[in-house]
Each structure stands twice: as structure tokens, then as C-alpha cells.
Nucleic acid binder design. Structure first.
Lengths: 162, 162
DNA sequence: CCTGGATCGTTTCAATTGAAATGATATGGA
DNA sequence: TCCATATCATTTCAATTGAAACGATCCAGG
């Protein structure tokens, strides 16, 4: 065995550690102030952009399993942040959208979330950050070509910006 | 609300998505061939470098909660990949180390794991990869200065290499 | 000694998770 | 029209998770 295998130098491990640490730090913002879970946070953000959408649409766009979306939406609805309107044309679909309270809650959280991100972005130069994003994109591309990897979510393919 | 909030452009989200995708792809290697979980994989790798260590040492070094380490070790022991020797000097400590079978299993998995990593690394230039790692390190540094973030594991502070 | 507090590993318990099953609705072809 | 198949959202169920509780062991100060 190549016994010089150092976990702390192994790319997948490093990614996982950083990602989890960032996620936890971010979650501290919306969990403490509004009692939201990661899934609920993602649903709210998605709804703020995409208006009234189905469970399936959320599932596909924000990398959450269908049951997880369903439960997140149920809790959000119970807390009045979201409303579910039975589909009109298609009886199976449910149109999920933000309520006033949901929009208000999101407006309270977003600045804090952007602040966390801004601190991360601010720690490196614009060029380095661009390189960082480009490398992430290339790694995704590697997995896109790998039949053993899970396909990428539709929405994660669109944006490559500063 | 800044309604131009795009989840797919939000750094924590992008990190989470890439990290999970990479993790799953890697897990496919050791899960299918040896039925290992992420925790078990990390424990094995750590043991291959650090010889006989305690549960607490693993917990601190590889970013796994104590109960998770305890259970991973228990399963690994049940499968004969690991042995637990009660501490001699300190009766509380347990010396956990690889068995022959454990070493053999790891030797089978490591090449595949390194191959996955090599494909990711190979998709970008050496300079870009160096920048990528440097940016990850800077983001860690931001969290190191943030009292609301979980402290970094000891072992993740050591290596910054190519 | 021996006793109070700290540390170690495990276990308990409640909550979360996702794969698979379910029920409900839609759609295309006979 | 009617049935087979597909799709949507939810629910079931078994497994995993981590915080807290637990028993066991160590150690420092009296």
C-alpha cells in the first residue's frame, strides 16, 4: 500500500471538511435566528427566485431529495412562511410559493448570509476567486463525464460569474 | 429583499454541491467493493498512517463525531479489519490498529481512491490547483478567526502541498 | 489513602435521512 | 372509452445521526 496516504492532503476529504465547516457557519445564521434547517433555507431561497413551483422542481434545482423537500415545505407551511396551492391544470402538482412572512424572514436572513459569503470572498483576490470557481467547474465537468457519478442538477449548470 | 439571490452562485451552496458529488463518487469505490461507509473509510486511512490510536485521537484528527467513530470502529472490528487492544497504562484508552485484513482491504481501495482524485486534479493546471488549495486554506483562515465557527481539526492544519 | 473533578469510550434517545412503497392523477394507445 | 404506464407528492420503514447521559478510569489535592 502507498502508506504515505495523508487524509489531510486528499482532495475529496479537504473539500468535505471545508464545505461542512462553511455550511455549519452559515447555518448558525438562519438556525439560531429563525429555526430553519438547511433544506428549509434552500427552499426559501429558491422560491424567492422562481416564484410558484412544484416539489419536483425544487428537488431538481437545489440538490435535495424529494422526501426532504416535501418535509421542508410541510414545516415551512406549518410556520406560515410558505403556501401550497393545489395545481389547477394538473391535479398532482402543487404550486409552492412564499408568503409575506416568508419573504420577510428571508429578507432578514439574506444579508447575514451574504455577509458570511462576503467574508470568504474577501479573503482572496478577485483573480484567485475566479480561478477557484473555474477549478470547481472543471471538477464538475470531470464528474459529468463519469457514468459512475450522479448527474448534476439542472440549475447548477447556468451561472459562472465573478 | 435582494431578489437577485441566486443559490447556484452562492459560494457555500456551490461548495456543498461539489463536495457532496465528489464524496458520493468516491464512496462508490469503497462502498460497492468493500461495503464501507465514509466514517469507516476515514478511520482505515487514518490508522494506516498513525498506527495504534484511541477513539478520541481519530475523532480529533478526521472530523468525525465521537459516537460515529466508536460505531465505525465497532463495525470494522466485527469485520476483522481492525483490532482493539485495551490500553495498558491507561485503562480508559483503547489502542485501535489495522489488522492484516484491514491493511489488505485498504491496499485494494487506495489505488481506486487515488485514481478518482487524480482525475479531478488532472483536469486543471498545476498552478490553478495550487491556487485552488490556497483559496481553500484562506477560507479556513477566515473561519479560524470567526468565534461562531467550529474550530478546525488539529490534523487539517499541517499539510499544504502540491 | 480517598475523594471530587476530569477524561475516555459507549450507549441512549429522539430526530433526520433516503430508498422504496403508496395513493392520486395524468396521458397515450388500443 | 378504457386500460396500462408514467409522473407527482407523500408516507412508511429501517438505518444513521449527534447531543446528552452513562459507567469506568485516571489524577490532583487534601
Amino acid at each position: 500500500m502507498p502508506d504515505a496516504f495523508r487524509l489531510s492532503a486528499f482532495l475529496p476529504y479537504r473539500l468535505a471538511v471545508l464545505s461542512e465547516r462553511v455550511s455549519r457557519r452559515l447555518a448558525a445564521e438562519y438556525e439560531r435566528s429563525h429555526g430553519l434547517s438547511v433544506a428549509e433555507w434552500r427552499v426559501l431561497v429558491h422560491l424567492s427566485r422562481c416564484g410558484a413551483v412544484s416539489v419536483r422542481d425544487i428537488h431538481i434545482c437545489v440538490n435535495l431529495e424529494k422526501p426532504r423537500v416535501s418535509r421542508a415545505v410541510a414545516r415551512l407551511e406549518a410556520n406560515g412562511l410558505v403556501q401550497k396551492i393545489p395545481g389547477t391544470s394538473d391535479g398532482r402538482l402543487v404550486a409552492i410559493s412564499l408568503t409575506e412572512a416568508g419573504t420577510a424572514a428571508l429578507a432578514e436572513i439574506v444579508p447575514a448570509a451574504l455577509a458570511v459569503e462576503a467574508r470568504l470572498r474577501g479573503a482572496v483576490s478577485r483573480e484567485d476567486l475566479a480561478t477557484f470557481c473555474r477549478v470547481m467547474e472543471r471538477m464538475h465537468a470531470v464528474l459529468d463525464d463519469d457514468p459512475q457519478a450522479k448527474p448534476r442538477s439542472r440549475m447548477d449548470l447556468e451561472g459562472l460569474d465573478s
